[in-house]
């Protein structure tokens, strides 16, 4: 849909600059397709809009394994390709967990699980108070949902009918005790619209992110191959 100098097919090479193993590391990265669809087709953000209060926000709550995130940021021009080399080294601004103070375009510093949804809800409140109609998308992992803080957040966002909020749960079945009945059900019972799709299918992801969900926050459960 959107033409860019560096596209989806470039991501394995960019990830390889960090991991040194482009074929396997890229395929094993559970978030890469979700991130690409969001940055390429869904979100109204660009390197030129980093400081624009009306920009859409993407919050990577699951901060570990950020190689795909950095690769997408590089592909979209937020950071330089050269930044990927030597990542997590003492001279790099790219760490094993992203730091918003150091990386242009990174909306939150994450790493400890269970913080992104609460921050996202605060952003939605803040944008609402300022009459800014931007969208806030937060990515969490299925194991991250174990953290109780998420359930404080899911309940409140549902009750507030925060249509500006989207939570995308990348589900690689890594939660130790699982989510019987499905992850989407946890959101629906609190008043969210939930859509469960193939997390590798770009068209399905795009449709899930963009179909209307008036008066309700949206949960997209992006299922990918199991971690183990």
């Amino acid at each position: 849909m959107t033409t860019t100098a560096t596209g989806y097919h470039e991501l394995p090479r960019l990830i390889g600059l960090m991991t040194g193993d482009e074929k396997h590391a890229a395929a094993a990265t559970s978030t890469v397709d979700v991130l690409w669809v969001l940055y390429d087709r869904v979100l109204d953000i660009s390197p030129r809009k980093i400081g624009d209060p009306r920009r859409d926000r993407f919050l990577l709550s699951k901060g570990h394994g950020p190689m795909a995130y950095y690769a997408v940021l590089a592909a979209k021009g937020f950071i330089r390709e050269a930044d990927l080399l030597g990542w997590a080294g003492v001279e790099s601004k790219l760490g094993m967990h992203p730091d918003r103070v150091r990386v242009p375009g990174v909306e939150i510093s994450s790493g400890s699980l269970g913080h992104g949804l609460g921050l996202a809800i605060g952003e939605v409140y803040g944008l609402r108070a300022q009459r800014i109609g931007a969208r806030v998308v937060v990515l969490v992992g299925d194991a991250e949902l174990d953290e109780g803080s998420n359930h404080e957040a899911i309940a409140l966002a549902g009750r507030e009918g925060m249509a500006a909020l989207t939570a995308v749960v990348v589900d690689n079945r890594s939660a130790s005790h699982g989510w019987p009945g499905g992850i989407g059900r946890r959101f629906e019972v609190e008043g969210w619209t939930a859509r469960t799709v193939d997390g590798r299918d770009h068209e399905a992801l795009y449709e899930a992110f963009t179909a209307p969900h008036p008066g309700r926050p949206l949960a997209v459960i992006a299922e990918v191959e199991a971690k183990n």
Partner: peptide
């Protein structure tokens, strides 16, 4: 004026998000 209910992790998380949005 935002009352998050008896949810103190969210209380502070929401404050962080508000500040990030410019409030």
């Amino acid at each position: 004026v935002i009352n998050v209910g008896i949810r103190e992790q969210l209380l502070v998380g929401v404050a962080g998000g508000l500040a990030l949005s410019g409030m």
